[in-house]
């Protein structure tokens, strides 16, 4: 990858990589480390990306993998995590802050699933590919995540649209 192509990709997807990592590790410093690693892997890779979508999904997958590595590391597992999502990510708006607090309170797999599905607009199949999970498992995670968010946010329900999973990517 040329320096110029790399720079363009980093500018275009830097925030995406950061958000994925942040949803996984809930820590700004770790998320930035992961971002740097992902960028290095992008620069080093000899892959020919067929399209922007291809590049984006590759980056999503690598970001998830690098986040996984960090989460699995011995030091991380035996340390008390410094969860500082509210330091940076908490929006000033009360509703957004409460919602982000609820999302960040979910388990890692649910947080990433919610992020990829709702923010990145990935289909269930695409989320499954990024997380290396079965599509049916991702559907279950989405349902559970929403149920937990519903409970956490103490409302009466999400409305009709929230009770099904977008499955276009599965067909």
């Amino acid at each position: 990858m040329t320096d110029e192509t790399f720079r363009q990709a980093a500018q275009a997807y830097g925030d995406t990589i950061y958000r994925v990592a942040y949803h996984a590790v809930k820590n700004q410093a770790d998320a930035e480390d992961i971002m740097q690693t992902v960028l290095l892997r992008l620069l080093e890779c000899d892959k020919e990306f067929e399209s922007e979508e291809h590049l984006k999904h590759w980056l999503l997958r690598v970001s998830v993998n690098e986040s996984r590595k960090l989460l699995r590391s011995f030091w991380r597992r035996t340390s008390v995590p410094l969860e500082e999502w509210h330091d940076q990510a908490a929006p000033e708006d009360g509703q957004r802050a409460e919602l982000m607090r609820a999302v960040m309170g979910l388990e890692t797999k649910y947080r990433l699933t919610v992020y990829l599905y709702y923010y990145e607009g990935c289909s269930v199949a695409e989320v499954a590919a990024a997380l290396r999970a079965n599509p049916s498992t991702v559907q279950t995670w989405l349902l559970r995540a929403r149920a937990r968010l519903r409970k956490e946010l103490s409302d009466d329900g999400e409305g009709e649209g929230s009770h099904y999973v977008r499955s276009a990517g599965l067909s």
């Binding site: 830097g14 925030d15 950061y18 958000r19 990510a89 957004r96 919602l99 999302v103 519903r150 999400e158």
Partner: peptide, 21 residues
């Protein structure tokens, strides 16, 4: 209530400063 639109707005504010990038 989990509102995807509100969630997207909140995520949109999660950015890396340009100088850091």
């Amino acid at each position: 209530m989990f509102d995807p639109q509100v969630y997207r707005e909140a995520c949109g504010k999660m950015t890396v400063p340009q100088d850091k990038l």
